[in-house]
Design a protein around this nucleic acid. Structure first.
Lengths: 214, 214
DNA sequence: TCCATGTCTGGACGGTACGTCCAGGCTGGA
DNA sequence: TCCAGCCTGGACGTACCGTCCAGACATGGA
């Protein structure tokens, strides 16, 4: 099992056993990330699925402000990787003896193997139907919030503190998901991202420009 | 195995063995329907899943005009029952020795058991996600055509000859599928139904009126 | 044949949403 | 302090949406 760990942080010492255990239990398709809740960076990664490394600025901070939960456990949420892999993510706030949040544990499970098995079963009855399941999303605003929430959680900081690149990334996810083909989607996304309609259009234009100019 | 058969039609005699065999092979979840291609009615049904009976006016006629296929076999196509069951439908034009179409065989397979198994697998990795699979439909015009095509096939007559009630029914399916929440959907549906934009809006208004006044 | 009924249709219309643009304000860094 | 970049509300033209209507058409009965 590959481990990426920069410095000997006491919190890593404290939690690494748990992280290793989870990473081993869930097999080769689970990534375990330990975030710093104070200094906003990655403490350690087991079985990394992306290129993130310890010390990267996947800052946290104020995770407890968004969606306060009774037991500090969030998820599972769905997340999309750039290469199309679909992840199930679970986050947990780890607190020190004083009760203050000191680290955030994220477990990302690659669901594609199980989904392939499910597709085999589903396809057995309808060999030609490309997607035998859902037609169109009825509660697409909920879906928008799910995608944004999953993204926010993976970055470990609330929506208000997302940078320009973060918003471009989450808009790319939403766009790839086809959100902007449905009517009245832009205002919903804008308010969900705590930004203005103009900005959403501007960022979308930049996305398209980047896509064509490369 | 339940069989609904009204009159001793020679075509029923000729093909009933095939129909019984298919109905037995595919178990209790397959419905086999033999349609009259000349007089536009149901000749016989094995394992009926709906309330249709032999002699019902599920007229056929001119099936060969729509989407000419080399081998007279259409599908499988997806179809929705009123109670939500999802079917895979296959149709075949049966021709008499002269080569003229005389009967149409339809096999409707209930996919819900297999889909439940698939849902178990898919849900294993994401217990809380209501729909772990697709986000939004990217090629929704294709989907519109699939729905309409499946409907047309189930009624056994081409789009141009659909009556008012037929169009209301297919529009209800499309509406329930959320098609009209996507941008520019109405013109696409109108041209697919070989009707005008005005008519689609009018029928949709009537649908809504019926839904609220009952 | 003529009429009555019901439906479909193209056109036109007002209203809404869409996407773009810009001048101003804000923020973070030099 | 200035500067550069970004965000923002507002305004604007356009495209689309949904409705309405008068005429065409088909159907069926007198």
């Amino acid at each position: 099992m590959e481990t990426v760990q920069e410095s000997a942080d006491p919190r890593v010492d404290r939690w690494s056993a748990v992280c290793r255990a989870v990473a081993l239990l869930l097999g080769p398709y689970a990534e375990v990330v330990l975030h710093d809740a104070e200094q906003d960076r990655v403490l350690a990664i087991w079985n990394p699925m992306t290129t993130r490394r310890a010390g990267d600025p996947s800052l946290l901070g104020e995770l407890d402000q968004l969606e306060p939960s009774a037991d500090d456990v969030y998820g599972p949420y769905e997340k999309l990787l750039a290469d199309g892999r679909r992840l199930s993510s679970v986050s947990a706030v780890l607190r020190d003896p004083d009760g203050r949040p000191s680290a955030v544990l994220c477990v990302n499970l690659d669901r594609t193997p199980l989904e392939q098995a499910a597709a085999v079963l589903a396809g057995f009855a309808a060999p030609t139907a490309p997607r035998p399941q859902a037609l169109f999303e009825q509660d697409w605003p909920d879906r928008v919030h799910q995608i944004i929430g999953s993204f926010v959680r993976s970055r470990g900081r609330p929506v208000e503190r997302l940078g320009r690149e973060d918003r471009l990334a989450v808009l790319a996810e939403l766009d790839q998901a086809g959100v902007f083909a449905v009517r009245r989607a832009v205002p919903v996304v804008a308010s969900a991202l705590r930004t203005s309609r103009s900005t959403v259009y501007s960022l979308l234009a930049e996305l398209r420009a980047r896509r064509t100019h490369s």
